[in-house]
Design a protein around this nucleic acid. Structure first.
Lengths: 255, 255
DNA sequence: CGACTATTTGATAGGACTCAACCTCCGTGG
DNA sequence: CCACGGAGGTTGAGTCCTATCAAATAGTCG
């Protein structure tokens, strides 16, 4: 277990040293996986939570005739299935987009930690909530935004999410996603993604070199996409002063 | 508080008589609201959970230029914001589609019940999980399915959800949603919804009379839409035999 | 009945798709 | 070191699905 997750959780809930220590010590199996491979498949039994340590991954669903919809991107520190104790089988697949390192966290260990530390549980719920926000925003994109707007919105989102985990350097970040995958993400054909991307380069919104994407004009991008970063809950830390009674109530409320 | 919610919760978790009684007795404010009105707006403070008792409602988000995306339909028994203790402000609006009766359930009351009865909490998480499943499926629809497929899929979904709460009579159900609203749901223009609907009537898939929609050929509809009802988790009841120890662990796990 | 809202229809336009070919970049292996 | 192969990116042409605009019709409610 690395710092990536702790950092993410602390974005939502302040953890004590003991809690952090327990997370660091959690027994996990770390694996490295090549790009474009399934990490877990639909209908598989869920035997542990998957934590992404390095690289990009995505969740997706396949239609019987082969059409694919990518449901979300997982970035370092992201975890899937924090609600591991509810579902037995997954309803979507998970695949690597780049070479990734993942930690598999056995069901028992997750249950153990969450049963001892309510604040950790609470942070997990926050993660789930943030994921939901992202999916809702994607729904708005697919339903209402044009190709240019969708791409701009996605790039803004990734920019903010990557920035929050210090993976943006000089306004650029590694972006190993193919145009076909972008198509499956945005509900567009690969060809049209290509043309839209060219348009964005012509407009000096982004630059692409190799697997590196540089944001040249974040403001313009955000304006085009009607992007508001709130939904990412990147700075949601529960900072407000609470009385002990309130804190007790909250702890109980999550129980 | 009516039976609608209990019935829904019991779909996921068996409740004791005491738990059911507590739910029935919960202090709520019941209101009746005319069709096509906002029940709660984006950025509003969340001061209670909203439970839909009767009628149709929807959650939606508005883009600055007026485009609207409906994010989900709420049917009788559906609740929004079971995670009331996490967020202070809503990130989307809620509107009535038909005349509705809602119960507003004060934050404190929700927190009280969930702190006393872990199984109720657990059932709430199941509700959230089911909602997420629906949103993911909508994402697949908007991203990959054609207009005909989207409409068919939505009708299948509503058919199953309404059937589960006994609101389907002789294969027909009340459906007061306008074609413009369907457009905002499916990412289509109202005109195109109209034409697709005509196509479906011509194909003898559905019949529409007044505000009543009758499913004439569910199988054909499901085939067109590639509809699989699993994601609705309509029969998810946690039936499996558990040992006391396991149950304790689970209860603790949700804490 | 009248005013409004919702549905329907027709004509036209345009965004995005498909198909097919071609190019470019890399990694591999002879 | 270069030839080869494959994957991904780019281009062009043609088409289709869906949007837009505008007007007519049908429904609904007071």
């Amino acid at each position: 277990m690395t710092m990536a997750l702790i950092r993410k959780l602390e974005n939502y809930v302040l953890l004590t040293d003991i809690e952090k220590h327990s997370l660091l010590e959690a027994e996990t199996t770390v694996r490295t996986i090549d790009p474009r491979l399934d990490i877990a498949c639909e209908h598989d039994e869920i035997d542990g939570a998957i934590l992404l340590l390095e690289g990009f991954a995505c969740r997706y669903r396949l239609l019987p005739d082969g059409r694919r919809q990518i449901l979300s991107y997982m970035l370092p520190g992201d975890m899937c299935d924090p609600r591991i104790f509810l579902l037995d089988h997954r309803d979507h697949s998970i695949a690597s987009l780049s070479r990734v390192r993942i930690a598999v966290w056995p069901r028992k260990a997750v249950l153990g930690l969450t049963s001892i530390y309510p604040r950790i549980t609470r942070a997990f719920w926050w993660c789930a909530l943030a994921d939901e926000g992202i999916i809702r925003e994607w729904l708005v994109s697919l339903g209402q935004r044009t190709a240019l707007e969708r791409l701009s919105h996605l790039i803004c989102e990734l920019y903010y999410r990557l920035k929050a985990i210090d993976l943006v350097y000089a306004d650029g970040f590694d972006f190993a996603v193919t145009q076909a995958e972008l198509g499956d993400t945005l509900g567009l054909s690969a060809v049209h993604v290509n043309r839209t991307l060219q348009d964005m380069r012509r407009k000096r919104l982004v630059r692409m070199a190799g697997r590196r994407l540089t944001v040249l004009n974040l403001d313009a991008l955000a304006t085009i996409a009607m992007f508001k970063p709130d939904y990412l809950h990147l700075n949601a830390k529960e900072r407000r002063q609470t009385t002990l009674a309130e804190r007790r109530e909250q702890a109980a409320g999550t129980a």
